[in-house]
């Protein structure tokens, strides 16, 4: 059963990789990278069950956190050309 889940995830991984290679814009590639990150996180969790080593779940959690931070960091770099830019204007509290 876990093997079936793992195979479906591998198929998803391959399809997302196709999109990352085809492009055409940088945002398409980033979206594909984000999807690959999510699928890899699930893959780690499934792998933990397949091999009977639940420590893999901690790796999955950390991978998920790094995934979102990485995506937003690359985005910020492409928008401002600078990781330390202040980003959006902060709106006043109501």
């Amino acid at each position: 059963m876990f093997a079936a889940g793992a195979i479906a995830l591998l198929v998803a991984l391959a399809l997302a990789l196709v999109r990352a290679i085809l492009g055409p814009t940088v945002f398409d590639r980033l979206q594909a990278a984000n999807t690959i990150g999510t699928v890899a996180m699930l893959m780690l969790a499934v792998l933990g069950f397949l091999t009977g080593r639940p420590e893999f779940l901690d790796l999955a959690l950390v991978y998920g956190l790094l995934n979102v931070v990485g995506t937003i960091a690359v985005l910020k770099f492409f928008r401002h050309g600078d990781l330390g830019a202040p980003g959006e204007g902060v709106e006043p509290h109501p």
Binding site: M1, G5, A8
Partner: peptide, 21 residues
């Protein structure tokens, strides 16, 4: 788990098939 795997694959398939970003 089967349904989840199928939905994951459908989402990735849509990522390849859809026409724009």
């Amino acid at each position: 788990m089967l349904a989840g795997g199928v939905f994951c694959a459908i989402g990735a398939f849509g990522l390849v098939r859809m026409p724009d970003f």
